[in-house]
Write a protein that binds this DNA or RNA. Structure first.
Lengths: 229, 229
DNA sequence: CTCCAAGGTAACAGATTTGTAACAGGGGTC
DNA sequence: GACCCCTGTTACAAATCTGTTACCTTGGAG
């Protein structure tokens, strides 16, 4: 969930627009993932957990406004800022756009410069360190908002890396993550770090979680990676 | 400084516009104070401490953009959201407007309905729950109305920045705020201030809160930011 | 059982991040 | 003007976290 470069989900059905925006977003330093229709968009929001969503108003299938409503009504994603893009300059729509929960609204044609300014503003405002509500697994609780972790009620102190590692595990308990995947998610895209480093940090996480007794909740999958539970 | 009904400062030189807006703002439940030129506006900002400023771009005397810059460059007022109103639809101006520090920008003619929506958005963002009621956390009490803070009954003297910092923290005890978020909320947006400055002020806040003993209520979340409790 | 690759982990040498005192400048007040 | 309070920045020390390495243990194929 975003380590260095913010991830922008671009939802736009027109190929030309999409390319222009992608190009510009990239050169501003964002990672971009794209969807051309509402259904893909909704899936991608959940899968990628973007830091910001650029949403075309008019879309084939599920409309932009509907996507926005869904994103905002779901706890896990409600915090993600949404910027609506629309050809309509109709004022009712502008108002509705904002009231649906969009965080900003731009009418086409808009300058790329302005869009980038708005994106920066939104990211600066909303982007917390780690997002999400409290995750639970067994007797372990991790709260992304307060950055607190406890096991059986007792507080657990974790370093930043261990915290991110545990959050990743807890996001999908049981799922097996390869070392490469963990490096990607926890350390960030394109960071040169030895895969054995993952082992060391998993070890540190284990030690922290078991300091007051209790079974080791982290499972080693030999030849593959690690998983929680 | 805002008891119950948010106070909007309306800066507009054209009498007709002014009346229309005032009427509408009133009926939406805002208190309105007005200025017809830049000089009056600047005085009123300091005197009344409005919760939001509606600023016409073109003004006799000091220009809207200049007022905005002054409001935003002054720490005591930087956090007040400014919405610019302008006849110019020039996109460069929009961008410049936002980059000068305005929080939003509307091009005339705009619908009153839209303006109200934007105002709500801005107020929702900036306006802490501190207005009116006192906030409490542990033995710390912060009264947004009288601007007084006490710990265990003993009064605590805080500078303006520390006060806003503490009220941000107290708005959501436990929540971790990144330095950028704090800069945004406490200092105001688009203020170029080093993130380390946040550390210094947190330090000052800590010292003030602990001067009569008691545990440090501010928690450092390494690699992320700070939180209360 | 033997052997080897895979995984666990202590230790260490940096590298980062944070706490804080000191300082200089801006504004306001008298 | 002299004074005072508040700010933002800086520099340095202290605290804490990191990645790597080296050396062990483990698992399981044969």
């Amino acid at each position: 969930m975003s380590a260095e470069r913010p991830l922008v989900l671009l939802v736009e059905d027109e190929p030309a627009q999409r390319e222009i925006l992608r190009y510009n977003l990239r050169s501003e330093g964002y990672d971009v993932s794209m969807a051309e229709n509402g259904d893909d968009a909704i899936v991608l929001v959940d899968e990628m957990g973007p830091d910001l969503i650029l949403l075309d108003w008019m879309l084939p299938g599920v409309s932009g406004i509907e996507i926005c409503r869904r994103v905002k009504s779901k706890r896990a994603t409600a915090h993600i800022p949404v910027i609506m893009l629309s050809a309509r300059s109709d004022e009712m729509d502008r108002v509705r756009g904002l009231e649906t929960g969009a965080d900003d609204y731009l009418t086409k044609p808009f300058s790329v410069q302005e869009l980038m300014a708005r994106i920066r503003t939104q990211l600066r405002r909303t982007r917390p360190a780690t997002v999400g509500q409290a995750l639970e697994f067994d007797d372990i609780v991790l709260d992304g908002e307060t950055h607190r972790v406890s096991r059986g009620g007792a507080p657990i102190k974790l370093g930043p890396t261990e915290f991110r590692l545990l959050s990743t595990f807890m996001e999908k308990p049981g799922r097996v993550w390869s070392r490469e995947q963990l490096l990607d998610r926890v350390w960030g895209r394109d960071v040169y770090v030895d895969t054995r480093t993952v082992d060391v940090h998993v070890g540190r996480l284990r030690k922290a979680l078991c300091q007051h007794g209790g079974a080791d909740p982290v499972r080693t999958v030999r030849g593959t990676g690690y998983a929680l539970g």
